[in-house]
Design a protein around this nucleic acid. Structure first.
Lengths: 168, 168
DNA sequence: CTATTTGCAAATAATTTGCAGTGCG
DNA sequence: CGCACTGCAAATTATTTGCAAATAG
């Protein structure tokens, strides 16, 4: 999937603004990393972003890519798919249910809703393949994490340093 | 969250049946591992399952837990949360959208739907915390994987052996 | 100028694999 | 009994970190 120029520019504009407002430095590598993710309609992994950026910036290192991607997520400029920075979780509940996932600590709770169980998917989804299950995934901040303060506490342990720019 | 006895028994019954039908051997460790996942309302990671089972079966090894959990998933007895066996993926599309995820290869596609954008969540969700985004996650098998045959091809590379019991 | 940020190389953490012995059907 | 399954230890893979040099504001 290819994203159109105008949209990419819009995304990059927002990126510049958010960085400036939050006091995050606008380095060459951050710009390139964000551009790389922004122009992919896809959902690349860190390594693919790395490879893409490397073509334009051969000296960039993979760990900078990781650091930047998490930074961008903390700034709310991009999202991660699935549970945040966590190990794989298993679920034996095969009945129809939905998930609330805490983006800070990964807490995952089931919930039920007759209404949500009978969602009508757009026809276009069939073009992707055969549909097996449909679930609603609600992302948010759980009560415990909300109480602990507004700072983005990384899921698994992102060192001491309290980031001055942390969300809000 | 605690699951009631009757439901656990029902799940284990299905487990026995599926194993028998698919020619998978019913070993002591598999039973215990499945029981552990089935009786947790939670969504445990492999390690937590391991610790739980170890109390009753001190000699079990962590890698058997891993092998068994993926086996159970391939048999359709449990599910994994998020993209299957994959590295973290990043998404710069911040507008309202939903995902189709292939459970075989991890392919992820965005799709849009005005109707899905305005889902009404049950009140109970608010008890979990503050809601930030709501997305519909459709899991299925993409066209490419569907064509490649019905066998469960593991996402990242689960060795040669074509499993005779693979789904269908 | 000076606090951030980068690149490097080395460290972790999660998950997988080869292999020889064990046990289910 | 034979082949699928297990446990072990060693291998991979993804991701993170400490540190000195580089750089944005």
């Amino acid at each position: 999937m290819k994203i159109n120029k105008r949209e990419i520019e819009r995304r990059i504009g927002r990126f510049n603004e958010v960085c400036r407002n939050s006091g995050v430095k606008l380095t060459h590598q951050r710009v390139e990393i964000f551009r790389e993710v922004a122009q992919t309609g896809d959902h690349p992994e860190a390594e693919r972003v790395y490879n893409g950026v490397r073509e334009r910036m051969p000296t960039i290192s993979l760990d900078t890519v990781y650091r930047t991607l998490w930074l961008l997520r903390d700034l709310g400029l991009i999202n991660t798919l699935g549970p945040p920075r966590e190990r794989t979780r298993f679920d034996a509940n095969l009945s129809y249910h939905h998930h609330f996932v805490c983006i800070r600590c990964g807490l995952t709770r089931d919930f039920y809703s007759d209404e949500l169980d009978e969602l009508k998917l757009p026809e276009s989804v069939k073009d992707f393949g055969y549909v097996e299950t449909t679930q609603v995934e609600v992302k948010g901040v759980c009560l415990k994490c909300a109480v602990r303060g507004k700072k983005t506490k990384p899921t698994i342990s992102r060192k001491k340093e309290v980031k001055s720019w942390a969300r809000n």
